[in-house]
C-alpha cells in the first residue's frame, strides 16, 4: 500500500472516533498482514474504487460493537438490532469518508461503496494478492481493528 495512504486513514480513524465517542484512544503498532484472517465477530466493509482498488474493514467483537453503538446513541443497547448495525456501519462510513476526503486533497481520486456489515462467529476473510495494513485502536469499549487493503490499478 502506498505510504501516502497510511496517514489519512490513521488520522481519520482517530479524529472521528474521538469526536463521536468523546473518549481517549490508544493506537497500537501498525503492521502488515497477509489478507486471509479471522474476523472478530462484527465487521463493517467499505469498498474503494477509482485510481485504486481495495477495501477498508472495521473489525471488532460483538460486545465492543454493542458498547460503541450504546455510547453513540446515548442509550444502553444489548441486542444486535437494526439500530446497532446502522450505527456501526455509519461509524465505518464516517471514518472512510474522512480519509478519502483527505486523500482527494492530496490529489488521489477515490470512490466509496456503501458500507456492508457482517456478523457471525468463526468467520474468515480472504483477498488474493493484497496485503492489509492493520491499525489497532484500543478504546474503553474494547479493541477495534481497522484493516486497510488498497492496491494501485495497473
Amino acid at each position: 500500500m502506498r505510504v501516502e495512504y497510511v496517514n489519512p486513514f490513521v488520522e481519520a480513524a482517530f479524529n472521528t472516533i474521538k469526536t463521536v465517542l468523546g473518549v481517549d484512544i490508544v493506537r497500537g503498532k501498525l503492521y502488515l498482514k497477509d489478507t486471509s484472517q479471522p474476523v472478530l465477530g462484527v465487521a463493517v466493509l467499505v469498498g474503494l474504487a477509482g485510481d485504486v482498488e481495495g477495501r477498508v474493514i472495521f473489525d471488532m467483537e460483538r460486545e465492543t460493537a454493542l458498547k460503541i453503538a450504546s455510547d453513540m446513541n446515548g442509550e444502553t443497547l444489548t441486542e444486535m438490532d437494526e439500530l446497532v448495525k446502522a450505527t456501526i456501519m455509519e461509524l465505518g462510513n464516517m471514518i472512510t469518508a474522512t480519509a478519502v476526503t483527505r486523500l482527494q486533497d492530496l490529489g488521489f481520486s477515490f470512490d466509496l461503496t456503501p458500507p456492508v456489515l457482517f456478523s457471525g462467529e468463526k468467520m474468515e476473510l480472504s483477498n488474493s494478492g493484497v496485503e492489509a495494513l492493520i491499525v489497532p485502536v484500543d478504546l474503553p469499549q474494547g479493541r477495534l481493528e481497522i484493516n486497510v487493503a488498497i492496491r494501485e490499478r495497473i
Binding site: 502506498r2 501516502e4 502488515l32 489478507t35
Partner: peptide, 15 residues
C-alpha cells in the same frame, strides 16, 4: 516513484 509500505513475504500485487 511509488513508495509502498509492503512486506515482500506477503503477496506482491505488482506487474
Amino acid at each position: 516513484l511509488l513508495f509502498e509500505y509492503h512486506s515482500i513475504e506477503n503477496g506482491n500485487p505488482f506487474p
